[in-house]
Amino acid sequence: MKPKVLVLKQLPEEAKQLIREHCQMIEPQENLISRERLTALISDVDGILTNDVRIDSELLDEAKQLKIVSNQSVGYNNFDTAAMSARGVIGTHTPFVLDNTVADLVFALILAAARRVPELDSLVKQGKWGEPGNGGEAHFGLDVHHATIGIVGMGRIGEAVARRAALGFDMKVLYSNRTRKPDAEEAYGAQYRSLDQLLEQSDFIVLMAPITSETTRMIRSEHFERMKPTAVFVNASRGQLVDELALIEALKSKQIYAAALDVYDIEPIEAGNPLLSLPNVVTLPHIGSATSKTRYDMAMTAANNLVGGLLKDRPIYVVPELQS
């Protein structure tokens, strides 16, 4: 009998075909599935494909047959890896396929904030270009080329950002990471710094760290105080890495020049959040990997992980904490 799997993501037909070839696939019609409904569905499934359902002890107690959870994302902060490990449940994710796409977006954010693209685009569309006091120096921004970029978290995406910075924009690359990255140092001239040193020396600060209990709120008031008044802060990893109130205050007081954000403490961002009314903030709706090709590749990788984890007949991307 084919293993039974629950798919909680919209997938391209090719990914569905791959799963159906090897598994009995359950695909709920609801866009938003309640926890009660989920509990009823998981009682006899062998696998789940998702990217946001919290996989914790409570859910695992209801899913007695569960063998694998395939996340269609590179992140897996929805996994209680200790609880999964204790029950022998595999957890997989989709690294590599989105690295360059997210790095592209990081540079879009850098350029948009430095050259005030959304702000000045709005000015032109409102017919204010050419009004008294609305031209010349009033439109000045910051150069990106030959500036110093500081990357907090030199993983695969961090290295893709470093490559663009060094080879495309002739930037000096600094990085802070748990371990040194000799290959990046050799390839891009990247220089290792402590977090405090990086914040003090960088013109553009890119946060690309994973979310863990140690990294939550890793950037706080005291860190913004160390940044240059001309610094641009970019976050395209997780909103919970930052004390958002401290960021808002740093922007309001012009302690830093600007911020460019793809992620927030609460998502979707609440309508009254001050970040939405500040002219020196670029805001995007968490679209780091949102291109057709990358999302297709992520879906196929997640489907392959799901099938491979059940059949044990192909390589899969197990999250580091659950690798044996």
Results as ranks from 00 to 15, higher is better:
Ala114Lys: 13
Thr291Ala: 02
Ile205Gln: 11
Leu174Cys: 09
Gly239Met: 12
Val161Lys: 09
Arg163Thr: 12
Ser324Phe: 08
Asn78Phe: 02
Met208Asp: 12
Ala113Asn: 14
Lys2Arg: 15
Ser85Thr: 13
Tyr192Asp: 02
Ser277Gly: 04
Asn134Ser: 12
Ala302Phe: 03
Pro279Cys: 08
Asn78Val: 03
Ser176Trp: 15
Ile19Ala: 02
Met171Ser: 01
Val69Cys: 01
Leu8Phe: 00
Gly141Ile: 05
Thr179Phe: 12
Asp46Cys: 04
Gln201Leu: 12
Val282Thr: 02
Ile110Arg: 05
Lys252Glu: 15
Arg116Asn: 15
Leu167Cys: 10
Ile19Tyr: 02
Phe169Leu: 01
Thr101Asn: 01
Ala184Trp: 03
Ser202Ile: 00
Leu38Glu: 00
Lys2Leu: 07
Arg164Met: 09
Asn304Cys: 07
Glu131Ile: 00
Asn51Tyr: 03
Leu195Thr: 06
Val206Arg: 12
Val53Trp: 07
Ser292Pro: 03
Val7Glu: 01
Tyr175Gln: 07
Ala82Ser: 08
Ala15Ile: 05
Glu267Asn: 08
Ala290Tyr: 03
Gln197Leu: 00
Ile149Ser: 10
Ala259His: 00
Leu8Asp: 02
Val89Gly: 07
Tyr76His: 04
Leu142Thr: 03
Tyr188Lys: 01
Ser122Asn: 09
Ala258Trp: 07
Arg35Ser: 13
Lys64Val: 10
Ile157Ala: 02
Arg164Ala: 11
Val53Ser: 04
Gly130Val: 04
Leu6Arg: 03
Glu222Lys: 15
Ile316Leu: 08
Leu322Asn: 12
Gln126Tyr: 08
Arg37Cys: 00
Arg238Met: 09
Glu249Leu: 12
Leu111Phe: 13
His223Trp: 13
Leu111Gln: 04
Leu207Val: 13
Ala112Glu: 09
Val74Ser: 06
Arg163His: 15
Ile205Gly: 09
Thr39Cys: 00
His146Met: 03
Lys4Ala: 06
Phe204Gly: 05
Ala165Lys: 13
Pro279Leu: 06
Val263Cys: 06
Leu105Ser: 10
Pro3Val: 03
Ala187Leu: 12
Tyr296His: 15
Asn51Arg: 07
Ala250Phe: 07
Tyr296Ser: 02
Val206His: 06
Leu111Tyr: 13
Ala231Val: 14
Leu284Gly: 02
Ala246Ser: 15
His146Ser: 12
Met154Cys: 04
Leu278Phe: 04
His93Val: 13
Thr212Tyr: 02
Lys67Pro: 03
Val106Ala: 14
Leu120Gln: 07
Val234Phe: 10
Gly272Lys: 14
Asp61Lys: 07
Ala236Gly: 10
Leu275Ser: 13
Thr291Gly: 01
Met300Arg: 11
Asn273Val: 10
His93Leu: 14
Met171Cys: 03
Arg220Tyr: 09
Asn51Thr: 13
Arg115Trp: 14
Val89Thr: 05
Tyr264Met: 05
Asn177Trp: 02
His223Leu: 11
Val5Asn: 04
Ser43Thr: 14
Ser213Trp: 02
Leu306Trp: 05
Gly150Thr: 08
Asp121Arg: 11
Leu123Val: 15
Gly150Phe: 14
Ile211Met: 06
Met1Arg: 11
Glu186Leu: 12
Ser237Met: 14
